[in-house]
Design a protein around this nucleic acid. Structure first.
Length: 306
DNA sequence: AAGGCCTGCTTTGCTGACGC
DNA sequence: GCGTCAGCAAAGCAGGCCTT
């Protein structure tokens, strides 16, 4: 229908295909057509070859309808509501039970429209009723997972993803900075956080930084793409170190065991521990790792181990 | 030729009302 | 309580058109 360039331009101009709406709302394209035919819920524009095109307002309406629909409202009933009734009903309905989903919808809208104000407004609304920890784990993590899928299906561009992840980083940094003004409570170990070479997915690592500071430990945050021999230097400065490495897309599946064993031979000793987390750790051969090496399946699992 | 989207028609699954 | 029935919603299928 569109080539990749046209698709990108369309999504930046906020013109969406029926497939985009399916990906963003979770409602099947087939069902969207049926709803249109039976109840006229959305009135898309058409190309000269009769393909449906939707604007941002249609997307917003569909996301609202999806929330009501999930909540048990029949589509036939929703269709009778006026244009203003739907959003006001959505506002009425949102309780703590589905606040998360509603916030995710709003963050998606903010992203598609590059709307910073909506992002901040939604964040403020969430943070008024939840802790930062809850917001991150219940809203930001699922949101970022969804964005990965939306990127894979060509529904959003890297620009959209970067826009949102930068704003999330900003919120993380504010919270981290607040904690860094507090005195260190525990001195039995120091946490060194970094990403492996060529790895740039930093949000998870930053969140761990926040959690570790929250527990009152000293941290050294090194961030993305850190060579192993650079990590070694830290051993001159600090006592027992826990090196945390977050692996999202690097190192490659074939190289990962080698990477882990190199870290073990370069860094272990003097009470040092190596903690690995991230999507790729499932590829690590657990039979080969040292007793000072620990692998975590989830953020919460690692936080419990601090 | 293949894949995506369009439409119209059919089938399946669910729910709620009714009568017993 | 429970079986039947009607109506609604979603999914499935077929055939055609358009683009790559």
């Amino acid at each position: 229908m569109f080539n990749k360039f046209e698709k990108t331009m369309n999504n930046i101009k906020n013109v969406f295909s029926i497939k985009d709406l399916e990906n963003l709302s979770g409602i099947k394209a087939h069902t969207i057509r049926i709803w249109e035919k039976r109840y006229n819920v959305l009135q898309p524009m058409r190309t000269d070859t009769n393909i449906r095109l939707y604007d941002l307002h249609s997307l917003q309406k569909l996301l609202n309808i999806t929330l009501l629909h999930d909540y048990g409202y029949k589509i036939s009933k929703i269709a009778t509501y006026s244009e203003e009734k739907i959003p006001s009903l959505v506002r009425e309905i949102i309780t703590t039970k589905n606040a998360n989903n509603h916030a995710i919808s709003d963050f998606k809208m903010a992203m598609m429209n590059f709307d910073q104000d909506l992002f901040f407004k939604t964040y403020d609304w969430l943070i008024a009723k939840k802790t930062f920890k809850e917001v991150f784990l219940q809203v930001f993590v699922p949101l970022m997972n969804e964005l990965g899928l939306l990127w894979q299906t060509d529904t959003i561009t890297p620009a959209h993803e970067h826009f949102v992840s930068y704003l999330i980083k900003q919120k993380l940094l504010i919270n981290i900075e607040q904690l860094q003004t507090q005195p260190v409570q525990h001195h039995d170990k120091v946490f060194v956080l970094s990403l492996p070479m060529n790895e740039i997915h930093e949000l998870g690592l930053m969140y761990l930084h926040y959690e570790i500071l929250l527990q009152g430990y000293k941290t050294v945050y090194l961030g993305e793409s850190m060579p192993i021999d650079n990590l070694k230097v830290l051993k001159n400065n600090f006592g027992p170190i826990v090196y945390i490495t977050y692996m999202t897309v690097q190192p490659d599946r074939e190289a990962i065991d080698n990477y882990v064993s190199t870290m073990e031979s370069e860094l272990l000793g003097d009470g040092t521990q190596l903690w690995f987390i991230g999507r790729l750790v499932e590829n690590i051969d657990r039979d080969k790792i040292a007793s000072e090496t620990h692998i975590f399946q989830s953020i919460t699992e690692l936080v419990d181990a601090i």
